[in-house]
Design a protein around this nucleic acid. Sequence first.
DNA 1: GTGGTCTAGACCACG
DNA 2: GTGGTCTAGACCACA
Lengths: 133, 133, 133, 133
Amino acid sequence: MTGPVLAIDLKSPVPAYRQIVDQLRRFCVEGALEPGEALPSVRRLAVDLGVHHNTVAEAYRALALEGWIEVAHGRPTVVLERAATAPKRERRLELERSFERRLRDFIAEMRAQGLPAPRIAGRLRTVAEEMEG
Amino acid sequence: MTGPVLAIDLKSPVPAYRQIVDQLRRFCVEGALEPGEALPSVRRLAVDLGVHHNTVAEAYRALALEGWIEVAHGRPTVVLERAATAPKRERRLELERSFERRLRDFIAEMRAQGLPAPRIAGRLRTVAEEMEG
Amino acid sequence: MTGPVLAIDLKSPVPAYRQIVDQLRRFCVEGALEPGEALPSVRRLAVDLGVHHNTVAEAYRALALEGWIEVAHGRPTVVLERAATAPKRERRLELERSFERRLRDFIAEMRAQGLPAPRIAGRLRTVAEEMEG
Amino acid sequence: MTGPVLAIDLKSPVPAYRQIVDQLRRFCVEGALEPGEALPSVRRLAVDLGVHHNTVAEAYRALALEGWIEVAHGRPTVVLERAATAPKRERRLELERSFERRLRDFIAEMRAQGLPAPRIAGRLRTVAEEMEG
DNA sequence: GTGGTCTAGACCACG
DNA sequence: GTGGTCTAGACCACA
């Protein structure tokens, strides 16, 4: 894993292990991490990020539970092949509703902190284009 | 407060009081709740949402700290007038970086759960248009 | 009661009725209100201060309980003669400890808000001299 | 934290969590608690004081909001370095007025309970001297 | 009526 | 081990 770089913010309200999980998952989803690729060892990454090794271990465990990676004693942790899960229709509708509400709540939070609406809208467009293009 | 409707999901990992805060803040930001308007009483809303009154009280207190509402003993809780905060340039850039990263992480999480990328992109466009229109 | 003037701050965290009680009690202790003197009616004072008449009524009731005033239906509320209570030695020591701790906590709170220590010390001296002189 | 000792009075009208906040803040202001020092855990202090752990947790949260301490999941709560705040002139005058009124009200309350004026004056002098010396 | 504080104790999240 | 959230329900303070 030389390409994508992890960055965690210890002052953030989001817990360290969650930041690691979120970013690694994103790398998997976006393809920055490919199946078969090896992740750094728990202790190595812990040192690099300046966190406790338990924190990294917990993040790896969570990702393994989600089916993104495979951890095994004595062997490097590797990214798994991942079949696209196609949820049932009902579940998908529920996901969409949840997505929409959380997205709007999140945007309101950023606006409340002073991020101008046009900048937010611009960013949303950019990301949307990336996903479609 | 007859217009906007709160909905909380007790099975969500996001704590109930946080969901209440996020949604009420959004109503304030989006104008669904207007300054001077009275919120339902702590105990009333608690019954409506099916949570304990302490949970709602904590949410109200958090919103009061953020400056969105005013809570006082023996009187109804009301929405406050809110001056637009214009953060400094440096702070704004930091906010934008944070926004971008959290947005991408969030999207990856939804994709991981099986929400198709095109649906997500579509939603992003819709929301962006609403904000600009 | 034309002399001493009540002023209450509705934005203060200290409840309105408490501010009224504290100030009237102080006037009694300091002699600004003398025994036999009549207080304004509940409703009159409520209008003057801009609070609900129940709030003033509650304050009067509290002061009556403490023995400072006498309230009676249909007659003006009057300040009572007040024998100096001389608490028992043990109780007095307890009072002194409590006084000292609350005083120091209070001072720390003001310093935390940015009031310079010399100003505070100066004020303490002034008040001490007034009490002795 | 072996030095300063907390004492709370459950019979006092001042809520327990407030007493904890007031005293810990005082220790920070007076230097009895130094930056970097660790506070006892929420549950530990709760047992020591004979209150529920929620009560202590609330006090810690309040102090964290004021910027005196840092609380984090799974790690000990520590005292923060604290920049001296220098309020604006107008704000300072407001603080002084507020200080004076609250001080006089407080003294009147203690006198009403039977604390002799000379003892109070003496205490005020002592504290003033400590602050100047 | 309103909101505030507290206790009892369960269960979760984090490092 | 740490702190966080929540419920159940009692009791108080305030207008």
